[in-house]
């Protein structure tokens, strides 16, 4: 069992397979995943039950006893051969979400720690982070929990040496050139630098999930007062971020 070139298809149990486009955090690889996800969903082949895009590959679950299961792998192979997926443009129809973020203070207890690691001051961290435009590389770990990236090389920060038992929903935490945005209270070993009142998962309101894989995210700096106002609006069921559709 040796690694072969990418892209490649590997069996995952009896009812799934993975299509891998690379083995590292690389935006071209992630764009390939998102483009292939869109193509598979458009193809809408029988037997396919669920497609889960990840950072560098996607998991495709299927029913091995359903009609069309026998031809599935050949069809995926043929689709892979159709073009160079690693040269894919970002998928059309993805959305841009401009998220209001309160950096530092009680919202971002690890802001100073991150500034030290980057060798700059907290204001520089806020300026650089809020000025970045990130892609939803994957949603995972917990409902609506979005892995955003990629930040510049110098943001290849280690995780903390401890796990915080729980950080509140909306927290933005950074490590390994990514920003993870939580939608539920969860434990983390990443450095929390800010918090948005926007929640990408709402169990009470359709469509329940907001950010989708491949979407883009920008940031707008807000102060604590504004954070509280917007949090109250969210608690009242108001929508505080209207996404733009990107072509």
């Amino acid at each position: 069992m040796t690694e072969s070139r990418f892209p490649r298809i590997v069996d995952a149990g009896d009812s799934a397979l993975m299509v891998l486009f690379g083995d590292s955090l690389d935006m071209a690889v992630n764009r390939a995943v998102m483009a292939f996800d869109a193509a598979l969903r458009a193809a809408d082949w029988p037997a396919v039950e669920e497609i889960t895009p990840g950072i560098r590959g996607l998991l495709l679950r299927f029913d091995p006893l359903a009609k069309g299961a026998a031809e599935l792998r050949e069809r995926i192979d043929a689709l892979l051969d159709e073009r160079d997926w690693l040269r894919s443009e970002p998928v059309a129809g993805r959305r841009l979400w401009r998220l209001p973020v309160h950096y530092g203070e009680e919202s971002g207890p690890d802001l100073e720690h991150v500034a030290e690691q980057l060798g700059c001051d907290a204001q520089d961290v806020i300026r650089e982070h809020s000025g970045s435009r990130l892609h939803v590389l994957m949603l995972g770990f917990a409902p609506g929990c979005a892995y955003l990236g990629a930040l510049p090389e110098r943001w290849d920060l280690p995780r903390l040496d401890h796990v915080k038992p729980e950080v509140p929903p909306g927290s933005l935490s950074v490590a390994v050139r990514q920003t993870v945005l939580f939608a539920t209270p969860i434990p983390t070993g990443w450095c929390t630098i800010g918090r948005t009142p926007f929640l990408s998962f709402s169990r009470h309101q359709e469509p329940w999930f907001y950010l989708a894989p491949g979407d883009e995210v920008g940031f707008e700096v807000i102060d604590q007062h504004r954070f509280r106002e917007l949090s109250e609006a969210v608690a009242d069921g108001e929508s505080i971020v209207t996404p733009e559709t990107l072509e």
Partner: peptide, 9 residues
């Protein structure tokens, strides 16, 4: 609830 793994569930 199958079908929501792409949203983290």
């Amino acid at each position: 609830r199958p079908g929501y793994a792409r949203f983290g569930l």
